[in-house]
Nucleic acid binder design. Structure first.
Length: 486
RNA sequence: GCUCCGGUGGUGUAGCCCGGUCAAUCAUACGGGCCUUUCGAGCCCGUGACCCGGGUUCAAAUCCCGGCCGGAGCACCA
């Protein structure tokens, strides 16, 4: 059995060429993992890590992948209705089709049953302490008055909670842990609280909402989750939730944590932070190409495979990492370079007239490293960028694949052959008659003209030579391109 | 303050559990060269790291202790 398992693993690793460390106690075909976001915005690069790592392990062991929405706070972390689909969409786009999708908010009724059982087991009690009062007691390690009520009283109070007899903040259901636990964060934590607020998904169905720790503890059991991979910020969750598992006699899944990820270019990735900046007008929306959301990255032409490799290379260490988008770009470049069509884009254009051009020619240029060709009209009026014009004015340059000229506003034609023009003196150009206005938006923005051939690659990433890779978003009277990366 | 967790080149990572084969892997970044009718890609070369101090041991990046530094949690948020 063990032999079978390890040889199987080796094969997989060879095939996938990647190196996630084996999961503890993982059995081929029996692994169940979940990615559990709160849909209060679209997935960011941070969420993508959870999707990729969990999804990748599931693939590695041919297991089951669950997408679960931990959406049990209609107020503080209020879910956004559209975001549910955004998560599904982006998860699939990243290459991990969920085997099952769970909406915690739709299953609150189920959690009530477990809460009741827990009370009957003496593992939970309804507490009427004010929040600050309890905090003081907790820090001092002192049990509150409500902790030792009879099970009957607790059941009755719980019913009253569910019937709406209490106001917000008046009563909560606490899990009985250990008021002397060395870590105060573990002591008698809240499992249910009262929130009279309509939920974006389930409306007014409930007003007694479970906290993440309760909901997650029950769901992980119901779904038979075998392995939990989550951020280090949730480290205490395991210690809290274990109390529930102990009361019920369940076995807790194997957990592994990873540290927080920071991207140089964006700092800490926080959905609520981005939301505020969008509202403040700093960004145009969740898919603003300057944003590190999955949809924005997709829009600008980052491939799912690049994101996958990027996170795999980051590994799953427990320390906080500071990583640069350059690493993601490098992965992406490796994928797109080969297939991206090459086009000329002239930013900040200068019109140059070539005097004494002997004839107009149809100029053939390579389309991409993997082959193909494109054509430009070699005529006597061309656009080049001001940068090149200023730099090479009065000197000999070659208009790539077209001709050599002595560069001036009225340039002198020298030859069609390249002669001995050196590297670095070959510049890009567009015939005036085939120039289409073009705007580049995103991390780098520019305006100018590109060749009309670009129209063939709408929706694709192209390389504007000597500029950058860009994704052509549309090409009507004007070309709109989203800056991908260099 | 209390409780956890971590510290390998600029950045990320492998190795640490089961000490030697580690004068430490790979990627990215940076520098140089080659090639190419792109300042992209490719190829080659180079720079560059085991937090500090003790201990155990013939031998420590790897084990133990202490320190320092960093992070997380301590919500009726997730």
């Amino acid at each position: 059995m063990i032999e079978k398992y390890s040889s199987c693993l080796e094969k997989k690793e060879e095939k996938r060429e990647r190196l996630l460390p084996p999961l503890e106690n993982a059995e081929e075909g029996k692994v169940v993992m979940r990615f559990a976001p709160n849909p209060n915005g679209p997935p960011t690069l941070g969420s993508a890590r959870g999707i990729v790592i969990n999804g990748e392990y599931v693939k590695m062991y041919d297991g089951k992948f669950i997408l679960r929405f931990d959406d049990t706070d209609p107020r503080t972390k209020r879910p956004v209705l559209e975001a549910y689909d955004w998560y599904i969409e982006d998860t699939e786009w990243l290459g991990y089709e969920p085997d099952e999708i769970i909406y915690a908010s739709k299953r609150i009724g189920i959690y009530y049953k477990y809460a009741k059982e827990l009370i009957e087991l003496g593992g939970a009690y309804v507490c009427f302490c004010k929040q600050e009062e309890f905090k003081k007691l907790r820090d001092a390690g002192i049990e509150c008055l409500h902790r030792n009520k009879s099970i009957e009283d607790n059941l009755e109070d719980w019913e009253s909670m569910l019937e709406g007899k209490f106001k917000e903040g008046e009563a909560v259901l606490r899990i009985k842990t250990d008021m002397k636990h060395p870590d105060p964060a573990i002591r008698d934590w809240v499992a249910f609280r009262i929130i009279y607020e309509s939920h974006p998904l389930v409306g007014d169905s409930y007003f007694v909402y479970p906290t993440l720790d309760f909901e997650s503890a029950i769901e992980d059991k119901l779904c038979e989750t075998t392995h939990i991979l989550r951020g280090k910020d949730l480290a205490d969750s395991e210690r809290r939730q274990r109390y529930i598992y102990t009361y019920f006699g369940w076995a807790y899944p194997i957990t592994k944590l990873w540290g927080r990820i920071n991207v140089y270019e964006f700092g800490k990735l926080s959905t609520s932070g981005i939301k505020r900046e969008i509202e403040a007008g700093k960004y145009k929306g969740w898919d603003d190409p300057k944003l590190p959301t999955v949809r924005a990255l997709r829009r600008r032409g980052i491939e799912a495979e690049a994101i996958r490799r990027f996170f795999l290379s980051l590994g799953i260490g427990e320390n906080e990492v500071w990583v640069s988008m350059k690493n993601l770009y490098a992965e992406n470049r490796k994928i797109i370079d080969e297939k991206a069509s090459r086009y000329f884009f002239i930013w900040d254009p200068v019109e140059v007239e070539i005097e004494k051009l002997p004839e107009e020619r149809k100029i053939k240029l390579p389309l991409s490293p993997s082959g193909g060709e494109r054509f430009l009209k070699g005529e006597n009026k061309v656009l080049i960028t001001r940068d090149d014009f200023e730099k090479f004015k009065g000197q000999v340059v070659r208009l790539k694949d077209f001709c050599n000229v002595l560069l001036e506003k009225k340039a002198k034609f020298l030859s069609f052959e390249i002669g001995n023009v050196k590297k670095g003196r070959i510049i890009h150009w567009i015939p005036l008659s085939e120039a289409v206005p073009c705007k580049v938006l995103g991390e780098v923005e520019a305006e100018g003209f590109c060749e009309k051939n670009v129209g063939r690659d709408v929706g694709k990433v192209v390389q504007f030579e000597r500029f950058a890779f860009c994704k052509i978003e549309n090409a009507n009277s004007e070309v709109l391109a989203i800056y991908t990366h260099q």
